[in-house]
Design a protein around this nucleic acid. Structure first.
Lengths: 239, 239
DNA sequence: GTCTATAAACCGATAGAC
DNA sequence: GTCTATCGGTTTATAGAC
């Protein structure tokens, strides 16, 4: 019985996966605003009405795609951090940023789905917030590792106090015993977080066309500046 | 005859303006991907076919909206610079950045049209590139003014050379006699440019929701960091 | 869970009269 | 330049048979 149940669920998950895959392909061709259940069904050789057994509405399919995109990007960032380790936080910072950029360039339409224009008429449900936070939490983890390693200097430009800027939930998180870094890093990190995605979005969305040729170099330099901005100085090689 | 011609053109421009206004309202409700000539015509009480005398296709209407948006934003930035003057470049930098942010927050859907996800199937014609460049050129003008005033320090983090990173056209511009600042500022400025829009996009597109409370303070601090990044140090008040 | 059939809309674009 | 009429598509979502 459990076996039957498992097989049934597995089949269900497989069809749902096929639907999402096809929807992702359509995301590229038509964009999120024009994602059509019917077109997905047509391409899959199914009746459109059959899809409603898997996703009760167009918005539910959209939600699933959004969650998948956030999770894929979050996983890419987290794995980059895991691979880099905590020994050289400056290097880990760069690796995580590069992983985010790489994923975005490899999946421009899924990236646009979550970091581009909001889809009109769509309101993201609560289920998306945890997956959406994973990249930011990874950046925070790198900063924490840097602080533990004593590699987090006090920044030059005076910082905003954490209390006034950052939302209550985030404040509680940063001040929790899990983190030992000074809370003032939080607003700084939030700004750097937005700036990182600004660099990536300009590249993915075509704003660099006919303006920037060597985007790798530009990004590399900018990432160093961002690290500098949160006080993550390069390791001093004592010559 | 000239008068008749002028009146005719004026009437034409007025109708075209009404069409664009209505289209902008629809942009907010439906998004660029679902902008519909028919719906615009319906709302205006016109036959849909009549619109084709003003805009030969849906994409042409979209192009007009994009150009208008770039121009409105460019004008806002340029006027902020004009008002600030070249005396205190650091202040001018902040004023221009604030003007861009203010316009974006006041016109989120037009902002999304030009700095959000690319509209699928739409290719921007050449006419959009000049309006699109106005904000960046204003930032460049502020940097030039700072350099002339001797307020542009050599940056701390080593810069990328202009030659490898920036496209040929931009290089020619920066090296032209109009500008006296070192060409190495160009790649730096490009990165800062992208980062500025990253800060604004996160705010406009809702990424700060439940994360950042006081966005004014966050932006103000970040703008100072960005100034710092291009070597625009705050004026030293000799106490 | 998948199908057919259907309701009740919607779209861009064009032809041709006035 | 605006209209009506039209072509040839499109959509979300539901009802009901199997």
């Amino acid at each position: 019985m459990g076996v039957i149940h498992g097989a049934r669920q597995k089949a269900r998950a497989e069809v749902a996966g096929a639907i999402k895959d096809q929807a992702r392909r359509q995301l590229a061709a038509e964009g999120a605003a024009r994602l059509s259940l019917r077109a997905v069904a047509r391409e899959l050789g199914m009746a459109s009405s059959a899809l409603y057994r898997y996703f009760p509405s167009r918005d539910d399919l959209l939600t699933a795609l959004i969650i998948d995109a956030y999770n894929a990007l979050g996983t890419a960032a987290e794995r980059a951090f895991e691979r880099a380790g905590t020994e050289d936080p400056r290097r880990a910072w760069g690796d995580v940023c590069r992983a985010v950029r790489r994923w975005a360039l490899a999946h421009p339409h899924e990236y646009a789905l979550v970091y581009g224009s909001p889809v009109p008429g769509y309101a993201a449900p609560q289920d998306t917030v945890e997956p959406a936070s994973r990249v930011a939490l990874t950046l925070l983890a790198v900063a924490e590792a840097a602080h533990v390693a004593g590699a987090l200097a006090a920044p030059e430009v005076p910082a905003a106090s954490c209390g006034t800027v950052v939302a209550e939930d985030v404040q509680r998180l940063v001040r929790s015993p899990r983190y030992t870094l000074p809370p003032e890093v939080a607003p700084r990190l939030a700004a750097v977080w937005a700036q990182l995605f600004g660099l990536i979005s300009f590249e993915v969305f075509g704003q660099y066309n006919r303006v920037i040729d060597d985007r790798d170099v530009l990004f590399e330099n900018a990432v160093n500046e961002l690290a500098h901005q949160i006080g993550l100085r390069p390791a001093v090689t004592d010559a």
